[in-house]
């Protein structure tokens, strides 16, 4: 067994072990942390495959984005520090069986397909990925790329609309009344958000 293979098995064991712990731990925050380790392990596998760009994106999107989001939502839930109740035996057996069948199905598919090493080296630089993204000829990804960017833009606009303040008249809290008293001066002039005071 070569050193490369040993590293592969170590990383895989790490990913699977962390995933298993994420499933079985009874503290929800620890579960999120184990998920984080599992995802970092996946990024390590990408590094091992020498597709660094995908690895970095994996870290940015999953570790820096999604896991942080999960942790934030855990922080905001009540009683998240307590241990969750133990699952009933019936549920445990059912989930173990589901996992086993799922694993058996996937394993069978891969084993039957009989992958052959091509021997071709595979070198996708970032600039190649970038030009493929903006490629308008056949096999290019310009259209999906633009559609996805429109989707992101739409969600951004939606966020801004949701976060925008309601007009002053509809809201009668003390602060708002104070603002009204001050002849409707914008709150910037009251030093609430003024950057020059920063």
């Amino acid at each position: 067994m070569t050193a490369s293979a040993i590293i592969f098995y170590i990383i895989s064991a790490f990913v699977l072990g962390a995933g298993l712990l994420a499933m079985t731990t009874r503290k929800i925050f620890r579960s999120a942390i184990w998920l984080l380790f599992s995802l970092i392990g996946v990024a390590a596998l990408y590094f091992w495959l020498q597709v660094e760009f995908i690895a970095a994106v994996q870290i940015i999107v999953y570790v820096g984005g999604i896991v942080v989001l999960i942790i934030f939502s855990i922080f905001l839930t009540q009683q998240s520090g307590k241990e969750m109740p133990r699952q009933s035996l019936q549920r445990t057996i059912a989930s173990v069986l589901a996992v086993l069948f799922g694993f058996g199905l996937t394993f069978l598919q891969i084993w039957k397909y009989n992958f052959q090493p091509t021997g071709k080296s595979f070198n996708w630089t970032v600039s190649k990925i970038g030009s493929q993204m903006l490629n308008t000829s056949t096999g290019g990804y310009a259209l999906p790329f633009e559609v996805v960017s429109m989707l992101l833009l739409a969600s951004m606009v939606g966020c801004i609309v949701i976060a925008m303040k309601a007009p002053l008249a509809t809201n009668g809290t003390a602060d708002q009344q104070l603002l009204k008293k001050l002849d409707g001066k914008p709150e910037e002039e009251l030093g609430i958000t003024q950057i020059s005071e920063v």
């Binding site: 660094e52 970095a56 994106v57 870290i59 940015i60 570790v63 820096g64």
Partner: peptide
């Protein structure tokens, strides 16, 4: 590494997890 600056941006975003 050929994605040096992206690597730095990516990995440094993990440090927030340690703080959380």
């Amino acid at each position: 590494i050929n994605i040096g600056i992206l690597f730095i941006t990516a990995v440094s975003s993990v440090s927030v997890i340690g703080i959380l």
